[in-house]
Simulated assay, not measured.
Amino acid sequence: MEDAKPMKTLMHSSTTLGLDEESPDDDSMMYQGMVGSLLYLTASRPDIMFNVYVCARFQVTPKEVHLQAVKGILRYLKGTANLGINFYRSHNFSLLGYCKADYAGDKWERKSTSKGCHFLGRCLVSWTSKRQSTIALSTCEVEYVATRQCLTQLLWIKHQLEDYDIYESSILVLCDNTAAINISKKTCLAL
């Protein structure tokens, strides 16, 4: 891969990897080693996390198309070696969360994926991309579950900060689904 052409973008989010029965089998040991190395790298490169976890689903019986996807991630890393996470010194401890979900993005089980990132001041401190455990019946339900997961993580961070005598009274969660926002408001008022 040293001579591979670098890429500036990862695979598109609409690209789906499947169990492609017609594609030839690939060496599972090599594939598992490549995916394992990429999993380790997600700690400092959250931008590749979703794609790596999609590729990790096929470690038992990888096909040629899966290997091509992993090679695409490696080409992307080669082309974006200057990217990383920056941490800034600050006394601003406001909590902020962004959440997003796709509706039935998993083509095999029809489950949705929740995604989110959590900031403490200007610093990214946590991120997630996780397949939801239930099958949702609407986009509103999917976004509400993602919002709930994001808020759960932010509340955990808030309680950790209280151990250091840092008290944050408000937590801002940003979601792009109006129906999920309205349900969240009603749920919070009921508490």
Rank of each mutant, 00 (worst) to 15 (best):
D3R: 05
A4G: 09
K5Y: 10
P6I: 09
P6Q: 03
K8N: 11
T9V: 10
M11Q: 07
S13V: 12
S14V: 03
S14D: 11
T16R: 14
T16K: 14
D20I: 02
D20K: 06
D25H: 10
Y31G: 02
S37N: 12
L39W: 03
L39K: 13
T42S: 10
A43T: 14
R45E: 05
P46L: 03
D47S: 10
I48P: 00
F50V: 00
Y53T: 10
A56Q: 03
R57T: 03
F58N: 00
E64C: 02
H66S: 04
H66Q: 11
L67C: 07
V70Q: 05
G72C: 12
G72K: 14
Y76N: 06
Y76W: 03
L77F: 07
K78P: 01
T80C: 07
T80M: 05
L83Y: 09
L83P: 00
Y88H: 14
Y88E: 13
R89V: 01
H91P: 00
H91T: 12
N92S: 12
N92M: 04
L96M: 11
L96Y: 13
L96P: 00
G97E: 02
Y98D: 04
A101T: 08
D102N: 15
A104K: 10
S112E: 01
S112V: 12
S114Q: 03
S114P: 00
S114I: 02
G116D: 00
F119N: 04
R122Y: 01
R122F: 00
C123M: 04
C123T: 08
S126D: 01
T128F: 04
Q132W: 08
Q132F: 11
S133C: 08
T134P: 00
I135S: 07
A136M: 14
A136Q: 11
T139A: 09
T139E: 10
Y144P: 01
Y144H: 07
A146S: 11
T152R: 12
T152G: 15
Q153R: 13
W156A: 14
W156P: 07
I157Y: 01
I157Q: 01
K158N: 15
K158A: 08
H159D: 12
L161P: 01
D163R: 10
D165I: 06
D165N: 15
Y167I: 13
E168N: 08
S169W: 08
I171H: 07
L172D: 06
L172K: 13
V173K: 00
C175K: 07
T178F: 15
T178V: 15
A180E: 04
I183N: 02
S184C: 06
L189I: 05
